[in-house]
Computed example of a mutant assay.
Amino acid sequence: MKKLLLIGLFGLFSLNVYAQEETTTYNGEKYGYIIDKSGKKVEGVVHLNGGYSSPWQNQLKVKFAAIADIDKVKNKIKFKTYDADDIKEYMLYEGDTPRVFQSIKYTNTREAINSSNNSTGIGAGIKALNNLTRTSQFAEIVTEGKIRVYKMYGYPTSASAYDSVENERLRTTPDYVYSKKGGKVEDFTPAKVKIAIADCPFTKAKAAKGEYGSLKNEEKQRSGLGKFIRDEIKNATVDKLSIVNEVIYDYNENCK
C-alpha cells in the first residue's frame, strides 16, 4: 500500500494555499497525503504537530512534504505547515493503519463550560477561551459510514504544562462528535443519537425496545440556559465510546 504512494510522485506539486516552510533533517517520516481546498490529493510524508502528551496539537496544524521536497541524498526534507483553514484533510500511516484527520467546523462548548465549573481564576478563563475561539480544527475519524464519528480533545490553559493533572485528564478522556451524511458536526448526546438513527426502521425499533444498553432514557427538564448548562455537564459523563461501538456501528452496518 505504501509503495503505491510513490508512483508518479516525482514531479513538483503546486498547492494554492498559504503555508509556512521549514527545512529539516529527513528521519524516516511517515507516508500519507493531504487534500487541498480544491479537492486535490497530494501524497508525501506527514509529521504530526502533537505527540503522546499533547494530542490536541494535531487538531491545530500538520507538517507535510511532497515527495519532490525530500532529498534523501542530502538527508533533507522541506516541510510546509498547514492549519484547518488551509486544507480539507490529512492522513498518515501508523504501521499499516491509516489515521485520517479532517478539517471540521466545531466549537468545544462543553470543555469551555467544564473549565468554568472545575477551575477558577484567570487560568479557567484562558482555558475556556482556548476552547471557544477555535472553530476550525482537524479531528481524527474513528468511525466511517452514513454517520461519521470524530475524536476531539479539549485544549489546556498552557501548551507547556504537559504534566499537569488537568492536561492528563484532557489527554486520557477525549470527546466524540459526529456528522451525518456529511452534514453539520454536532455534539454527541444520547438524545441526538436517537434522532440520528430514527430514519432507519432497524435501529429505531431496537432503540424503542431499549435494546441498546448504551442509550439511557433521559429525564425531561425545564428549558433555558440552566438546562443547557446542566445537560452539558451531564453529557460529559456519558459513555460515548460505548454508543459508538454499539449503536453507531449497528446503524452504519445495517442502514445503508
Rank of each mutant, 00 (worst) to 15 (best):
E219I: 10
E219Y: 07
E219P: 06
E219S: 13
E219D: 14
K220H: 06
K220C: 00
K220E: 12
K220D: 10
K220I: 09
K220S: 09
K220P: 13
Q221S: 09
Q221F: 04
Q221A: 10
Q221P: 00
Q221R: 14
Q221C: 01
R222Y: 06
R222M: 07
R222E: 09
R222T: 13
S223T: 12
S223K: 05
S223V: 08
S223N: 08
S223I: 08
S223Y: 11
G224E: 09
G224A: 09
L225P: 06
L225A: 10
L225C: 02
G226S: 14
G226F: 12
G226A: 12
G226Q: 13
G226R: 10
G226C: 04
K227H: 09
K227Y: 08
K227G: 10
K227A: 15
K227D: 15
F228C: 02
F228Q: 14
F228D: 12
F228S: 11
I229R: 07
I229Y: 07
R230C: 00
R230K: 14
R230A: 11
R230H: 09
D231V: 03
D231H: 06
D231Y: 00
E232I: 14
E232Q: 14
E232N: 10
I233H: 04
I233K: 13
I233E: 10
K234I: 08
K234E: 15
N235D: 15
N235A: 14
A236F: 06
A236S: 15
A236D: 15
A236V: 11
A236R: 10
A236L: 11
T237W: 00
T237Y: 08
T237Q: 10
T237E: 11
T237V: 09
V238W: 05
V238H: 08
V238Q: 12
V238I: 14
V238A: 10
D239I: 08
D239K: 13
D239A: 12
D239G: 04
D239E: 12
D239W: 07
D239H: 05
K240P: 05
K240H: 06
K240A: 06
L241W: 07
S242W: 00
S242M: 02
S242H: 00
I243P: 03
I243C: 07
I243S: 02
I243M: 11
V244I: 13
V244A: 03
V244S: 02
N245C: 01
N245F: 01
N245R: 05
N245Q: 12
E246P: 11
E246S: 09
E246F: 01
E246Q: 07
E246L: 05
E246Y: 02
V247Q: 06
V247H: 01
I248A: 00
I248L: 12
I248T: 01
I248F: 05
I248V: 10
Y249W: 01
D250K: 03
D250R: 04
D250A: 03
D250N: 07
D250T: 05
Y251L: 05
Y251R: 04
Y251P: 00
Y251N: 02
Y251C: 02
Y251I: 01
N252K: 03
N252E: 04
N252C: 00
N252F: 01
N252P: 00
E253H: 02
E253P: 00
E253N: 11
N254G: 02
N254Y: 04
N254E: 05
N254S: 05
N254F: 03
